[in-house]
Simulated assay, not measured.
Amino acid sequence: MQWYERALTGNEKILGKNHPSILHTINGIAVIFSNQGKYDEAMQWYERALAGSEKILGKDYSLIFDMWYERALAGYETILGKDHPSTLSTVNNIAIVFDNQGKYDEARQWYERALAGNEGILGKDHPSTLNTVHNIAVAFLNQGKYDEAMQWYERALDDCEKILGKDHPSTLSTVHNIAGVFSNQGKYDDAMQLYKRALVDRERILGKNHPSTLNTAKALRITIPRFINAAA
């Protein structure tokens, strides 16, 4: 491990942090931690390698990293059990990898596995459960399956309002996202109403210059002429 860390420091200094050779060293460190049964540390290094590969070589290169996640998952399942939060977190990470690769059907299968585990172990009201519900909605949205996306977004909104409150940033983010689904469906009146709700609440809670507020304001400006043209 000391030699890997020494090599990493040297390579970053000489080649820069974005050189492809750096990825091999990072991978080596991850493998060592994995072989030692230190899966939390291994996952941190695997995720660093994945992020680096996507940045340097593009997302297609990240296909190589699928087996790393699956190896980590096997370790978690063996040592901690299939229902341990760390195991479920890894299941969710595998889903994210598939999502990033545009493999939305596979992503949803892994998200749904994570959701079932989170609901059973952590409960339906746990933030990790809410996050997985939202991720499933996004996967459907990315596929252009707006009806299915809406069903999951509405569930996420109901849960967020009940658990986090109507003014929570995650709730407002979900309101904004549902408006986006309506816009994609050509339901501009419904979209405008929700964008206005999100904008008013974000201005009040986050401020008028917050990036999330500005994003909603921009979306509303785009939607208004679409609504006018559709109504004409």
Rank of each mutant, 00 (worst) to 15 (best):
A149F: 09
A137P: 03
L115Y: 07
D40S: 14
A72E: 09
A51C: 07
N100M: 14
N215V: 01
N184W: 07
L164H: 06
D60S: 13
P211S: 01
L164I: 08
N229I: 06
Q185R: 15
H126W: 03
G52M: 12
I136Q: 01
H84E: 12
V133T: 11
W152I: 12
A139E: 07
P127D: 03
R155N: 03
N93I: 05
C160K: 09
K187W: 13
I136E: 07
K162A: 07
H176K: 11
W45R: 11
R226D: 07
H210I: 02
T216A: 06
K208M: 11
W45D: 08
A74F: 07
I56S: 13
A231Y: 00
N92C: 10
E112I: 10
W45I: 08
M67D: 13
L214M: 09
F140L: 02
L130E: 00
A231H: 06
M192L: 15
N135Q: 09
H126D: 09
R108A: 10
I94D: 09
S212H: 15
G120H: 01
P169E: 06
V97S: 06
N35E: 15
S128V: 01
G16V: 00
A217D: 11
Q151N: 10
D167C: 02
E119W: 09
V91N: 06
L141D: 15
W110M: 11
T216C: 14
D99R: 14
W110R: 10
Q101V: 11
N35K: 15
T9Y: 01
I79V: 15
R197F: 07
H210C: 01
E154N: 09
G37S: 02
N229C: 02
Y39M: 11
S89A: 15
T9F: 00
G75A: 13
A230N: 09
I224W: 04
G37R: 03
Q2R: 05
S21E: 10
R108H: 02
L194K: 12
A217S: 14
S21L: 01
A149W: 08
R48L: 10
K187I: 09
Q109C: 06
N92A: 10
R108S: 08
E47S: 14
L141I: 04
D66C: 03
M150L: 12
I14V: 14
E203C: 05
V175T: 05
G123R: 07
E41A: 13
G186S: 11
L172A: 11
R113T: 10
M150Y: 04
R226A: 06
Q101Y: 09
H176V: 08
H126I: 01
A74W: 07
S86Q: 12
K17P: 04
N229R: 10
M43P: 07
